[in-house]
Design a protein around this nucleic acid. Structure first.
Lengths: 108, 108
DNA sequence: TTCATATTTCCAATTATATGGAAATATTAA
DNA sequence: TTAATATTTCCATATAATTGGAAATATGAA
């Protein structure tokens, strides 16, 4: 996980419509969801949806497959775990974490 | 975890400087880090840092404590786990996940 | 072909975010 | 007090993201 990669994920999820879209794909799982369904469910214009889906795709948060006339979007759930690991990387400089109680209100 | 809460976290982390600041606080753990140190380490102007620290604070990603003339910033590492749980909430509609291989390239 | 459905692209207007110098404020030591 | 250090606020400028209507493109059915 690189810094740039993580930023694109966070930027993608830091927007209400996109967060809703992503969470919807998670709820669908491998059944997936089409743009048409998303427009129905979330009530957003198709131009707006298309823009946001592309952002999610660029962040690699969703995977897309064409199936006849429809596109099917599915979540890249694995990425969520990798992101959370990235954020906690080298926690406490690699040493065992010192509980807050021992230091935060006492002497350091 | 509410939608708004999650968005503020993602918005906070979707910016290079803030992501670097947050990861630095994680690496420090409960020892914490002061704005002065952050300015030194990341090489950003203090006005810029102050702005970003406030964003991280508003997102509840960092906790702050005054210690004499210094402020000490520490990560709210717990929030990282809650965010990741939120993203995967009600995965596959609550039913056991169907592996991709069974559906994505076959008939649905 | 022709037609209907599904989705994307274009584009211009709006709104939001980031930057950093300079000045202001806060805290403590001497 | 006065001086030194630490941090924040102000503010104007610059940059980037969001929106959605209308038109264009893609796909497959009849």
């Amino acid at each position: 996980m690189k810094n740039k990669e993580a930023i694109s994920v966070f930027l993608a999820l830091g927007q209400e419509t996109r967060l809703n879209i992503f969470r919807l794909t998670v709820q669908r799982g491998n059944i997936g969801v089409t743009p048409g369904e998303i427009v129905e469910i979330l009530g957003i214009p198709n131009a707006t949806l298309s823009f946001h889906l592309k952002e999610l795709q660029h962040a690699d948060l969703v995977l897309v497959e064409r199936r006849s006339r429809n596109l099917i979007y599915r979540p890249n759930a694995d990425l969520v775990k990798r992101i959370s690991d990235f954020l906690l990387e080298n926690c406490c400089g690699g040493k065992p974490c010192i509980p807050v109680a021992q230091t935060s209100k006492g002497k350091i």
